[in-house]
């Protein structure tokens, strides 16, 4: 992608807080209409990157462009084109749903008629229509996040920045939320979001895996999976934790990850190692019910890239 085509262009940005290097030389570009995901453990630098993109935090160095505008030099010029939803609920809890929408619509100079029509449409999509007159502080976690999204979208931004928008949100609200995001992508809105949910990460067009302020890998979910070295075996059985420990250091095993009642074992060669693992486990007194090759998830890729320590 040529730089001038990118809706969001981040080039070697860094930011430190005291002695902590929160973001180190991060670069990525997002094409118009993409949903770009920032994934990583707490403290990886996701929030700092989003704040710098939103123009509320200045980078120490590097270049930031949003819809062609230099955010570092002219953050105020970029602001009418973006919407930012901070991780912490940023709306007024002592104002009603409708009052919050009216407030943000006016700050972005949305004409009255457009505000009413768009507000109606967004509230309906978010399932918030019956709650127009309810104080924002009295909404559930999921409804609050959806209201945040409604307020963020009332002015049709070019770029939407969402910091962990679905953390603490119930599955139904998450589904509504993503339905709205997909709808936006159709209309050419570029979305950059951070998430701690791996299933959500898989829904993004492209992902940047962050750790300790650096991008460790950046590709489509499929590209990331294809790039993972080796193959993945899922071992199921009665004592997954015991099996996890028993398999450490077995020949050909490159990584182990406990996933609920499964152990994900990354091996160099699935066909050859599966019988070996079964034999090894049987020898140690375990009876795995199944061992089969599976498609890696984002979490597996993360662990493969960073080791178990950086599990998000």
């Amino acid at each position: 992608m040529a730089p001038e085509e990118a809706a969001v262009l981040v080039s070697r940005i860094s930011r430190r807080f005291g002695t902590v290097e929160a973001v180190r030389e991060v670069s990525f570009a997002v094409a118009p209409g993409e949903i770009f995901g920032l994934v990583g453990p707490d403290g990886a630098g996701k929030t700092t990157i989003l704040r710098m993109l939103a123009g509320v935090l200045a980078p120490d160095s590097g270049e930031l462009r949003l819809d062609g505008i230099d955010v570092r030099a002219a953050p105020e010029q970029a602001k009418p084109r973006l919407s930012y939803m901070p991780q912490r609920f940023g709306l007024y809890e002592d104002m009603t749903v409708a009052e919050n929408i009216l407030f943000y619509a006016t700050l972005f100079a949305v004409p009255g008629r457009e505000r009413r029509e768009r507000g109606q449409e967004l509230l309906r999509a978010a399932g918030l229509e019956p709650f127009r007159r309810r104080l924002a502080g009295q909404l559930s976690g999921g409804m609050k996040q959806k209201l945040g999204l409604v307020c963020a979208l009332i002015h049709t931004p070019r770029v939407l920045l969402l910091d962990e928008p679905t953390t603490g949100v119930d599955p139904v609200s998450r589904r509504d939320f993503w339905a709205i995001l997909y709808g936006l992508r159709e209309s050419g809105v570029t979305i950059v979001l951070s998430t701690a949910y791996m299933d959500e990460a898989e829904r993004c067009s492209r992902l940047a895996l962050l750790h300790a302020g650096r991008i460790q890998a950046c590709d489509t979910p499929a590209g990331l999976k294809a790039a993972m070295p080796g193959a993945l075996l899922a071992v199921a059985g009665t004592d997954p934790r015991g099996m996890h420990d028993a398999l450490a250091g077995a020949p050909g095993v490159q990584g182990l990850l406990l996933m609920g009642d499964h152990v994900h074992v990354r091996v160099d060669d699935a066909a050859r190692r599966a019988p070996e693992l079964r034999a090894s486990l049987a020898a140690q007194g375990f009876a795995p019910s199944s061992i089969m090759e599976i498609e890696p998830g984002i979490e597996d890729i993360f662990v493969a890239l960073l080791g178990a320590k950086a599990r998000p």
Partner: peptide, 14 residues
């Protein structure tokens, strides 16, 4: 304190 500033300063308000 209430966390509303972060969103407010991301708008074009001067």
């Amino acid at each position: 304190e209430r966390g509303t500033m972060e969103q407010l300063i991301s708008t074009p308000v001067t």
